[in-house]
Design a protein around this nucleic acid. Sequence first.
DNA 1: ATAGTAGACTTGTTTATACAAGTCAATAGT
DNA 2: ACTATTGACTTGTATAAACAAGTCTACTAT
Lengths: 243, 243
Amino acid sequence: MPAPKYEPIYKEIRNEILSGVYAFGDYLPSENEYTQKYGCTRNTIRRAIGLLSAEGLLLPQHGRGVQVIYSPETGKSLFTVGGIESFSEAASRNSLRVKTRVVGFEEVTADEKLSRKTGFDPGKELFHVQRIRMFGNKPIIFDENWFLKSEMPGLNEKIAAASIYRYLENELGMTITTSKRRVSAEKAIPEDIRYLALHGLDFVLVVTGQVFNSRGVMFEFTQSRHVPDQVCFIESAIRQKIS
Amino acid sequence: MPAPKYEPIYKEIRNEILSGVYAFGDYLPSENEYTQKYGCTRNTIRRAIGLLSAEGLLLPQHGRGVQVIYSPETGKSLFTVGGIESFSEAASRNSLRVKTRVVGFEEVTADEKLSRKTGFDPGKELFHVQRIRMFGNKPIIFDENWFLKSEMPGLNEKIAAASIYRYLENELGMTITTSKRRVSAEKAIPEDIRYLALHGLDFVLVVTGQVFNSRGVMFEFTQSRHVPDQVCFIESAIRQKIS
DNA sequence: ATAGTAGACTTGTTTATACAAGTCAATAGT
DNA sequence: ACTATTGACTTGTATAAACAAGTCTACTAT
């Protein structure tokens, strides 16, 4: 399965935007110019531009052109909710030295209560993984995951300490397709206080999510509890016409 | 400017999903069946399905079909960050009686500090609007907006108490296209404590955002401070292939 | 001089077609 | 009985072409 044609185009333009080739407010070359440059049809170009617009980097303007609305200042948040990005990916994107500490690894069976919380059916066998994410020496995230055991029987503590997503994609050949996430703020629980560098704060930013694989099986439930003053999330949205 | 053909299709399918015609896990009719039903090409159908997938309602599966991954339980959050939804829209979507109280309305000029916060250039004339959003009798959101005066000279307190977006779109004919949002958790400020029903909590969930109009002009900076136990946000994401 | 328009751009929508590639069940061959 | 393969489905990608509609400049007629 070769990479689709729009992907390298998407990446190249994205790279140009992030690296500052175009400043905030600049207009990209027109779609027709891009078709010549990349030797493809307008549709393919529009696909790449559409992805970048959905990310909040571009703003196409009817009759005018496509404007860059990314600026390094507003764009520099540690994590992005808009895409599914693993911790180590976000870290490498920010070129930061990071460490992961596994503080809990056990097999559990979903009971009624856990089922309501995670969405896994009662009786399902799960891996329960608790990890601390550290930037430098600062523990920033308390990550709690439940994985469906049947989808990843070989998961162990060592893999959890490295990158579970890398294991899933490279070893198991699983492709992760979609995720639904919910963001909320919650009072700190004892684990937050024990593990995170809260500096006296008594609340955390919580991101929960269900992750589906390409077969439509929900195989992961995640809860990431973040130190609130260290991280924030950026997201873009396109308004739907009302009526 | 007539509505595009994919829009009513998008709306009808969306409606069917939200109203429970299809349950979580069900597969939609195939794209080819839809082309017959709606008398259009596959591209148009795919557009509608693509929008719904981006919203996290559908999960297309190569070779299989398109699965519904929306369920009323996980989907019932008051507000959605994935789309640009105004307060009154979200309220009507949840069929809730809501009230808006304007607690501040003034004209200001952006100084250096406000410029850093909002992204408006220093010297720009702005409307500064502070509003409390109430569900029933519960004050849930403290909304602070800065609007670019030059884009909406006629804004006044009365309009602010109703719906500013309705004013922009219906009266001024402005179409809102894109927004970038950031979510974080912050310690409650005196206004939060004064206005919101925090019930002893000392933190809020803060959503900030810049909103652009179709001419690429940033005309609004928003900061919504939410009672954390009352609201949460749902978001969907599609994983990009790594390298 | 000024208003209006024509035309050359831009992006937005839709059709039509072809092939690639994943899924799944029925069938054929052993 | 079991395996392999075929074929009919599904979604994914890409091309090509046409027209709609918004923007902006330059020219034209008054």
